[in-house]
């Protein structure tokens, strides 16, 4: 008798657990899936119940978003900026993380504490000062060359993205390099390999797992970033999230919802595909870094 009562509460507990789990799944998946469905709805379908399925595949929304709202151009810009940022970041961060974690030299601990302090500097605070700085340098360039070129510049934006990601990336890479035994360098030195060769052809390949994590995290960071892009790129070279902001404002004013949801799909689809491909690495890697923007 007593045992069956225990079984009963056990079953009730299990049911409770699954109900809560499924409730959270629904609250996460339904809004995201709804946006996908809304992106192929015609405008007249937005009157009435939001739960009706699309009448058909209204592809015109995507055409409008890509062409009229220039999301196609912005997609290209985002690809360029994100790619460039990742490239700059890796070229700059990898050697410094390697040296900071595996070489003894004067000023090393100072640099390391700079990196840690940098983890606390938030992009949102410094977006406007960076803008003013570029404006200032631009006015100097204008006097010298007759033209300013630092604002609305994809390369500059990419450099700044890479710079703001440096503390987190160096922190993560150094903590990986620190775990490696010094045998690698000793063996390489016996084989007659110099510092550069040892670093590039031996140490970097070994660090591949954490390099992949760095790329994944920073891809998401750069792809989704909008406050720097909004502040530093007031011209036509917008990135996708900024383009989406404009699109959302414009379509809401025009009561034309389809292209707006199509724009949202364009922004989130690449990250969702990437996530589904590598979700295991991402959620595991997160515990290595443990830093949130």
């Amino acid at each position: 008798m007593k045992k069956s009562k225990g079984m009963r509460t056990e079953t009730l507990y299990k049911i409770f657990i699954y109900v809560t789990l499924i409730a959270l799944v629904i609250t996460i998946l339904i809004p995201v899936a709804w946006v996908f469905l809304a992106s192929i709805k015609e405008n007249k379908e937005f009157y009435g119940s939001p739960w009706t399925l699309p009448d058909g595949f209204y592809f015109q929304n995507f055409v409008e978003a890509f062409v009229d709202a220039k999301m196609g151009d912005y997609l290209l810009n985002s690809v360029i900026v994100t790619g460039l940022s990742l490239l700059i970041l890796l070229v700059v961060a990898l050697p410094s993380a390697y040296v900071l974690s595996r070489f003894e030299f004067r000023g090393r601990s100072l640099l390391n504490s700079f990196v840690k302090a940098g983890l606390f500097i938030n992009v949102s605070y410094i977006a406007v000062p960076i803008f003013l700085m570029l404006l200032d340098w631009d006015s100097v360039l204008k006097v010298m060359f007759g033209d300013g070129m630092l604002l609305n510049n994809r390369f500059i934006l990419a450099t700044i993205y890479a710079s703001t990601a440096l503390p987190f990336t160096i922190f993560l890479l150094s903590s990986y390099f620190q775990t490696l035994p010094s045998d690698f360098e000793e063996a390489a030195s016996i084989d007659g390999a110099g510092y550069y060769k040892t670093m590039i052809s031996i140490m970097f390949p070994i660090a591949m797992p954490s390099i992949v994590i760095v790329i994944l995290f920073n891809f998401l960071l750069f792809w989704n970033e909008y406050i720097l892009a909004l502040t530093l790129m007031p011209g036509d070279n917008k990135t996708l999230p900024v383009g989406l902001l404009n699109l959302m404002a414009a379509e809401r004013a025009a009561v034309n919802y389809g292209p707006m949801y199509a724009g949202m799909v364009i922004v989130m689809l690449p990250t969702l595909i990437l996530y589904i491909l590598v979700q295991k690495r991402l959620t595991q890697g997160m515990t290595v870094g443990g830093v949130k923007g």
Partner: peptide
Amino acid sequence: IFYIPNILSIVVIAGIFSA
């Protein structure tokens, strides 16, 4: 599934919650 919101751009989240 639970991790999905974390990979979305905050602009997309703003759009989702406006809906």
